[in-house]
Computed example of a mutant assay.
Amino acid sequence: MDAGAERLRIGGLTPLTSIDFPGRLAAVLFCQGCPWRCGYCHNPDLLDASIPGNLPWARVLAFLTQRRGLLDGVVFSGGEPTLQAALPAALAQVRSLGFEAALHTGGMYPRRLAELLPLLDWTGLDIKGPLQRHDAITGAPGSGLRSRESLGYLLASGVAYECRTTWHPGLFSVDELLALADELATLGVTHWALQECRAAGAAPFALTPVQTQALAARFSHFTLRRN
């Protein structure tokens, strides 16, 4: 998995964010292409991996060079950044400019993630759901097992992270959500965020305060995000 950073297909750029890389002011690069087809995907225009990027890497470098001393870091999001062979070179160039590097990933390529972790300062790993529901959510057989393998690499690396799950009761039940929290806590996850799914047709959010407290009690850092 190696290619020049100039081959990274980028579908968009957010010049400033304070929420996508905790504790940092960052720019976000949205990488083109994702092999999964989650029904609630927030960036469906980035799914097709055959679409060329619309932002050349040279322009990204020029932008970042101008922002040295103003931004703390750069987030590679998507789409799925680890789909692209040019990602390691792009991460290395970002770090050479003095920026910290963050990654948003679904964990579909565990070995690639393991190779990238030494280049990362923070990782946001999407845990789509319980193992028995994961493949149906992503439309990709075996995706649940791959996400758990990626989680193992992430936890062993010592890289700062957040696991996050987007949920509404139509995806899986409250009991399954509580069981997922138990699973993650048992695996050693300490930072978990539960995100309300606001996609069209999503069932109403259905957690009681008691259930929310039960989830929070399993983690040293728990965040509930309701837009």
Rank of each mutant, 00 (worst) to 15 (best):
Q213M: 13
Q195C: 06
A86G: 08
D121K: 03
L87H: 04
R148E: 13
S147G: 03
T166N: 10
E162S: 02
L171N: 00
L83Y: 08
G139V: 01
P110Y: 13
G107H: 09
G152E: 12
V174S: 01
A114H: 14
E162P: 02
L215G: 06
L171R: 00
L87V: 09
Q93Y: 00
R146T: 00
I137A: 01
A214V: 01
G188R: 05
A89D: 14
V174T: 12
S143C: 04
G106L: 12
L97K: 07
R133G: 05
S147N: 12
V210D: 15
L117F: 10
L177S: 04
T166E: 09
T166C: 13
P130M: 04
Q213V: 06
E162A: 01
A185Q: 11
S96C: 07
A160G: 05
T138Y: 05
L131E: 07
P204N: 06
R198Y: 01
L87W: 09
S147V: 11
T186V: 12
T123V: 15
P130H: 07
C163M: 09
P169Y: 03
V189N: 03
E100S: 14
T105N: 03
A86H: 08
I127S: 01
F99D: 09
T123L: 15
Q195G: 07
L194M: 10
A181L: 08
I137Q: 06
R148H: 07
L91S: 06
W122I: 02
Q195P: 09
R95G: 15
Q84P: 13
W167I: 06
W167L: 09
G158K: 10
L154Q: 01
G144W: 04
F99Y: 14
Q195K: 10
Q195D: 11
T165H: 06
A202P: 11
T186K: 12
P169S: 02
H191E: 02
F172C: 04
V174A: 00
A202G: 10
T190Q: 04
